[in-house]
């Protein structure tokens, strides 16, 4: 059973709504949406490239290249061209620390 591990400081967000971290041997994008924190594998299941710079809207992230959208809470694809889910991580903030747990 995996445990939560610190991956970043809250201050790493700066003014941005997301940070990229390397966790569980994978690239992960951690996104703040209002008061909630989400973390998904930073790789689009359609073209295998990063989602980092994608638009975040309605609790989903859009692939900046072909427009696939993924639900940040479940990792499920919401529209074509993606048909496969992406990995989702449990994320939380404790004090000033950002913590993730592998699925």
């Amino acid at each position: 059973m995996s445990e939560f591990q610190q991956v970043a400081e809250l201050s790493d967000f700066g003014g941005a709504d997301r940070i990229s971290v390397f966790f569980d041997d994978r690239s992960v994008v951690v996104v703040r949406v209002e008061n909630a924190l989400y973390a998904v594998e930073d790789v689009c299941s359609h073209d295998g490239q990063p989602l980092t710079d994608g638009v975040v809207e309605n609790c989903s992230i859009e692939c900046p290249r072909h427009g696939a959208r993924f639900d940040l809470a479940t990792g499920r694809p919401l529209c074509m061209p993606a048909v496969e889910s992406i990995r989702v991580y449990s994320a939380k903030i404790e004090g000033t620390q950002v913590l993730l747990k592998a699925p």
């Binding site: 991956v7 970043a8 400081e9 940070i19 690239s27």
Partner: peptide, 12 residues
């Protein structure tokens, strides 16, 4: 193993 990476890096 976890490590922070600078926020929003380029593709590489």
């Amino acid at each position: 193993m976890a490590s922070a990476v600078a926020s929003t890096p380029g593709p590489v």
